[in-house]
Nucleic acid binder design. Structure first.
Ligand SMILES: Nc1ccn([C@H]2C[C@H](O)[C@@H](COP(=O)(O)OP(=O)(O)OP(=O)(O)O)O2)c(=O)n1
Ligand SMILES: [Mg+2]
Ligand SMILES: [Mg+2]
Length: 470
DNA sequence: ACAGATAGCGCC
DNA sequence: AAAGGGCGCTATCTGT
């Protein structure tokens, strides 16, 4: 609601500033769109159509989505054609109207983009830029409302008689992960992105609690094991956290905080237990670092890095090089996986799940590059899925958890959620963490063990709602 | 009017 | 947008 109010306020301000224009063009706004294509029109007709589209755009922007909906791409295209040079084209050759393109065209309040020059007067151009900026915001919020809020409000028929949701878990992915649908419970907004507090809608039954347990740095641990990377395994053996380390490298203010003694990189023996860790104090920064770590690990190039993170090509190259130089075995292992894919047309996971990669020999460099990156990702992501599946089998069949009244609700790739009576929560939580940390069954002894050469660390929390369990 | 593709949002 | 990987949902675009 706060977010919607913010946008409405923005649009209201815009309305005040542009009301006169909208009113002055009431006639054109009322007039239906010409059925002719822009190409068939005379110069005068085309000019009138563009004026019409522009003022309709303004009118819609100030009305917000409730009445007429927000302008669609065709309308935006008609406003920007034909004087504006298209930035990019769709597959079928139409000028692209994607969000990055629109943002670029509209620019910022201080510095309008090229759209400003697409109109007869400067004033008209600035108005159009303001409208497009407003529309990009409204559009993003609309997507959130449509794909997360409205389904949970029951607008698409996915609720049962008690207003509960029962998403399906599917076995349909290339790597062995599960997916979830109707609703997708594996992509609900989380943490700072959960601006509507959607996760508060997911609650335990009365008398019960949710227990959430998530592996720490799961795929990096598996990479260290499979590639047999000495530096990574040593780091994990002493409680190392690569996402935190990367966050420190990325943000000088975290470095300062650590130098100041008011923050700790990782938990280590003999350190003050009251000093907060980077992981807890800088969670948002650590999540950005996580994205960077996995992006590089799974084949992101310096070019892509420079673009996405807005850094120089030099800095991007140094970053990728440093990442691999500190993990030489990973570089070699990835090359072996590409060779394996070329030789056998497939790669395998820890438990032997096999993914065919026919495009590995494609003459299309785009398709081939994709297959090469899949060849280095699938053994890791797929092995992580293997391990989580093993853990889920143990959780589902565990006699103690059953006695305590706990049932498994969901997995989110490296996270397992169970629900049961509050009074047994502590023991159930310890049990869940233990099962996830020791998901393999030893053939001879029948004991649950961890067969990897790295520890499987598990973070866990419990709460009445999913929102609180973080 | 329909079906498949695309765009843009979210998660791991 | 674009040479990180793996997904799903909704509205819209696009071709028939
Ligand atoms: N942008 C992302 C996010 C996640 N993953 C994969 C690798 C992760 O290991 C796994 C699980 O996601 P988490 O968010 O739980 O990440 P980690 O387990 O690595 O970190 P944390 O210690 O915060 O749980 O999903 C990925 O490939 N790309
Ligand atoms: Mg994790
Ligand atoms: Mg996770």
């Amino acid at each position: 609601a706060a977010e919607i109010a913010e946008v409405e306020e923005y649009l209201a301000k815009y309305l005040r500033e542009n009301k006169a224009i909208v009113e002055a063009h009431a006639a054109e706004i009322a007039e239906p769109k010409s059925s002719k294509s822009l190409l068939e029109m005379s110069v005068e007709e085309r000019e009138r159509e563009r004026t019409k589209d522009r003022v309709k755009l303004l009118a819609k922007a100030v009305q917000t989505a409730e009445s007429d909906g927000i302008p669609n791409k065709v309308e935006l295209r008609r406003v920007t054609e034909p004087t504006l040079q298209p930035v990019a084209f769709t597959k079928t050759g139409m000028p692209q109207m994607s969000t990055p393109v629109l943002k670029m065209l509209a620019g910022s309040e201080d510095k309008p983009g090229p759209l400003v020059d697409a109109f007869k007067t400067r004033k008209e151009g600035e108005e159009a830029c303001t409208a497009v900026r407003a529309l990009v915001q409204v559009s993003a919020i609309n997507t959130l409302l449509e794909s997360f809020i409205m389904p949970l409000q029951g607008l698409y028929g996915i609720l049962d008689a008690n207003d509960r949701v029962h998403g399906s878990l599917n076995m349909n992915t290339e790597t062995g992960r599960l997916s979830s649908r109707r609703p997708n419970l594996q992509n609900q907004p989380a943490l700072e992105k959960d601006r509507y507090n959607i996760r508060r809608a997911f609650v335990a039954s009365p008398g019960n609690t949710l227990i959430v347990a998530d592996y720490g740095q799961l795929e990096l641990r598996i990479l260290a094991h499979i590639a047999d990377c000495t530096a990574m395994k040593e780091a994990f053996a002493t409680g190392g956290d690569f996402h935190s380390r990367t966050a420190v490298n990325m943000y000088s203010f975290i470095q300062d905080d650590i130098a100041n003694g008011t923050c700790l990189l990782e938990k280590e023996a003999g350190s003050d237990p009251n000093t907060p860790l980077v992981k807890d104090k800088y969670g948002a920064e650590r999540r950005k670092a996580k994205t960077l770590n996995f992006s590089i690990a799974y084949g992101k190039t310096a070019h892509g890095l420079a673009k996405d993170w807005d850094v120089s090509m030099k800095e991007a190259e140094d970053t990728v090089k440093a990442w691999y130089d500190s993990r030489p075995e990973v570089r070699d292992w990835q090359e072996r996986m590409r060779q394996e894919a070329r030789r056998y047309g497939a790669v395998c996971t820890l438990l032997g799940r096999r993914r065919p990669l026919p495009d590995i020999t494609s003459k299309n460099s785009g398709a081939r590059g994709r297959a090469e990156r899949a060849a280095i990702n699938t053994p890791i992501q797929g092995s992580a899925a293997d391990i989580v599946t093993l853990a889920m089998v143990e959780v589902a069949s565990d006699a103690r958890l059953r006695e305590l009244g706990y049932t498994m609700l969901l997995q989110v790739h490296d996270e397992i959620i169970i629900e049961g009576p509050i009074e047994s929560a502590d023991e159930a939580q310890r049990r869940l963490v233990h099962l996830m940390g020791h998901p393999f069954r030893d053939e001879s002894s029948g004991e649950l063990v961890n067969k990897l050469t790295v520890e499987l660390a598990v973070d866990s929390d419990k709460a009445l709602s999913w929102y609180e369990a973080k």
